[in-house]
Structure formats: C-alpha cells, structure tokens
Computed example of a mutant assay.
Amino acid sequence: MSVTEDPGESSELVTLKTSSLTSVVEKEIERLILGGKLRPGERLNEFQLANRFGMSRGPLREAMRSLNAKGLVDVVRNRGVFVREIPVDEALEIYDLRSAIFGLAGRLLADKLTDEMLSKLKGFLKTMDEHAANGDFDAYYPVNLAFHAFLVTSTGNRTLVREYQSFVDRLHLCRTRTLVQAKGLSVSNYEHREMVDALASGNLSRAHEAFFRHVQRAKLRFLSTLEEPGDGDRAPQDKTAT
C-alpha cells in the first residue's frame, strides 16, 4: 500500500493516490477503534501503524487529523495520538443530542413508511427476539446496530444520518455490554417493537416520542453501569444495546 512517485506520473495523480490511501487507512483505523481492537486511552504508534499498512507517515498523519476531527482520537502535543476516552458528562450530553435526532428520525419516517420497510423492520425484530431468547449478545448486537441504521437511513435525510452516526461512533468509545444480564436484550427489543408499532400507526407525534424515549432509556441503562455513580470521571468500557 505504499505510495511511491513514478517520474512519469503527474503531481495530480500522485496527490490522488495519496488522498485515496489516506481514506483507506482512516477507514481501517476507524474500524479497529469502533470494533474495540484499539481501546480508549490507547496510544497509536505511528511507526508501527506505518509498517502495518506499508505506507509513509504523511498519509497516516492525514488520516489521524481526520479521525481527530471526527472525535475518535486525541492529538496530544509532544506525546502522540490516543484513542479518545469519553468522560461521563460528555457521554450524557451525546445521549441527549442523539435522542433529539432519533426522535426527529421517527417523526420523518412515520410519514413515509412503506409496507416493504415495515416488513424489513419486523424481520429485524424477529431475529433480535431469537438472539435475546438465547442470551446471545454477540449475535444480537450487530443486528441491533443494523436495525437502528436502517431506521435512520430510511428517513432519506443525509444530514441527519451523518450527524446521528457521528454520535453513535463516539458512544462506541464508552459503551459495550450491559444488557447481557437479566432480561436486558428482551427489554431493549420490547422498546424496538414499541417504535415499530408507533411507525405503523402513522402517528407522527407517537413515533417521535417512542424514538426519543428509547435513547433516553439507553442513557439510563448507561448510567446504571457506572461503578461509582458519583465519580463522574470516566465512562465504563462496556457496550449497551439500544
């Protein structure tokens, strides 16, 4: 994946190759962060990453700048680049913003729901019910993410999708598995069913409320995972289904 200048290539082509490489590397590092392979607080070793991807440090630094702009890494002067750690107070603010955007998504979607969309949503619910019955978080969680992504993208509002996804990505840095215990997965999917029923009713206000309330409940579940409610310093590194 290294970028080398061919004497016969134009500077524009070299720039395009570098830009393309930066984008590929950025997506791969983002995947490692969101997948938990690179943990919050972990230092990203520039030399090791350059070797891993077989590239020069220039495109890698561009990728880091972009990830910093997305709020996924922190660039600390004279120390390096670190996977971002989200403090509890910031996580709660993100939950509030996410609930507002998700509520709007419910209102918009209720006005354009088709039989085909409804059928697909019911398919998601059925699959998640099966995984919840087996207590299989690892199978449940990706379907849960796909369900939410389908709801948001189906609004057709690209700006809403982009902003919503940025909040979801940042929350990945401070949440993982809390709904494995008790009947958490089933509770979460019960809320999903409330949302789908609200959409099917065609009532915009009801859909807005169901979507908004779902994220607010997720926020309460997140709060319940804090080891010491008064500590307010850092979010636990565990995923919650929403």
Rank of each mutant, 00 (worst) to 15 (best):
E5N: 07
E9A: 13
E12T: 06
E12L: 14
L16I: 09
S20E: 14
V25E: 06
I29Q: 06
L34M: 00
K37Y: 14
P40D: 02
G41Q: 01
E42V: 03
E42P: 07
E42S: 05
N45L: 02
A50L: 04
R52W: 12
S56T: 10
G58C: 05
E62H: 10
A63N: 02
L67S: 00
V76T: 08
V81F: 13
V88H: 06
R98T: 01
L104D: 03
A105W: 09
R107Y: 12
L108I: 07
A110T: 07
T114P: 02
E116K: 09
S119F: 12
F124P: 09
L125C: 02
N134P: 00
N134R: 15
A139Y: 03
V143H: 09
A146F: 03
H148P: 03
A149S: 14
L151T: 00
Y164S: 06
F167K: 03
L173A: 05
C174Y: 01
T176D: 15
L179Y: 13
R193V: 07
E194S: 05
V196P: 02
A198E: 03
S205R: 14
R206D: 12
A207N: 02
H208T: 02
E209W: 12
A210M: 04
F212L: 13
L226E: 13
G232Q: 14
A235F: 04
K239P: 10
